[in-house]
C-alpha cells in the first residue's frame, strides 16, 4: 500500500458517497447516467469474484464488498425506487453499452494474464471500467451544463484512477519485477477520458465561485 493508492481508494469511496447522497437526499437522478452505473456494477461483480478465494488483505476484501454493494444499490435506486426512477430519462441516457461490453469481452478473452476463466473475466472488468464513464460523459455533453454535485462526483471518479496511475509509477520504481501492463494501459485510457472534463471542471471552480461546469 502507498499513499497514492490509498488516496485513490478514498477518492473512489468519496465518489460513491457523493452519488449516494445526491440520489437519496436530492431524491433525483437527473444528470446521472444509469448506463454508467450499470457498467460499474458489472465491473465490480465480475472483478471481485475472487472475493471468495483471494484474501490479499482485509482492507481489499472489505472494500470489494462495499463497492459491489454501493454500485448495486445505486442501480437499484435509479431503476426501481420512486421518485428517483421517474427522474431518469431513457431518451437522454441512451448510450449503446453493448458496443462497450462486447469489445471488452473479446479483449478479455484474447488479452489477459493467464488462460483461466477468472483471468479472462478479470481482464474484461479492467477494460470495461476504462470505458464505463462514457455514457455519463455523453449525458453531460448533451446537457451542456453540469449540476454541482454531479461535477464533484465525476471529478472524484476521475481522480481515483489518476491516483492509481501514480501508484503504478511508484510501485514500478520501488518494487522489483512489478509488471501490470493490462491495468497500466486501461488505467491510462480511463484517466485520459476525463482530461476534457477536468479542464472544464478546473475552469469552473478556479474562481472559487461555484460557477456551473459548462461542457461545449
Amino acid at each position: 500500500m502507498n499513499i497514492f493508492r490509498f488516496l485513490g481508494d478514498m477518492s473512489h469511496i468519496l465518489s460513491f458517497v457523493i452519488l449516494l447522497l445526491k440520489i437519496t437526499q436530492g431524491k433525483s437522478a437527473a444528470g446521472i447516467s444509469l448506463r454508467t452505473q450499470e457498467l460499474y456494477m458489472i465491473v465490480f461483480c465480475s472483478r471481485y469474484l475472487d472475493l471468495f478465494w483471494n484474501f490479499s488483505s482485509l482492507y481489499n476484501s472489505f472494500l470489494k464488498v462495499v463497492f459491489i454493494a454501493c454500485s448495486s444499490a445505486i442501480v437499484y435506486i435509479i431503476r426501481f425506487k420512486s421518485p428517483q426512477k421517474d427522474t431518469w430519462n431513457p431518451e437522454l441516457d441512451n448510450f449503446p453499452i453493448q458496443y462497450l461490453i462486447g469489445p471488452c469481452a473479446v479483449a478479455g478473452l484474447l488479452i489477459n494474464q493467464d488462460w483461466t476463466p477468472f483471468e479472462m473475466i478479470w481482464a474484461f472488468s479492467i477494460y470495461l471500467e476504462a470505458v464505463a464513464i462514457l455514457p455519463q460523459l455523453f449525458l453531460l455533453q448533451k446537457q451542456g451544463e453540469v449540476e454541482n454535485l454531479t461535477s464533484h462526483y465525476v471529478a472524484a471518479l476521475g481522480a481515483y484512477r489518476g491516483l492509481y496511475l501514480m501508484n503504478w509509477v511508484y510501485r514500478y520504481f520501488t518494487e522489483d519485477d512489478y509488471l501490470q501492463r493490462i491495468v497500466w494501459f486501461a488505467g491510462t485510457v480511463q484517466t485520459g477520458l476525463y482530461i476534457d472534463f477536468f479542464y472544464h471542471y478546473y475552469q469552473s471552480k478556479r474562481g472559487g465561485l461555484s460557477r456551473p461546469v459548462k461542457l461545449p
Binding site: R5, D9, H12, D50, N54, S56, S57, N60, L63, K64, F67, Q113, D114, E119, W122, Y164, N167, Y178, L179, Q180, V183
Partner: peptide
C-alpha cells in the same frame, strides 16, 4: 507458465 501477478489491488 508463470503465475499471473498477485491481485493485491482493487
Amino acid at each position: 507458465g508463470n503465475k499471473p501477478p498477485a491481485k493485491d489491488e482493487l
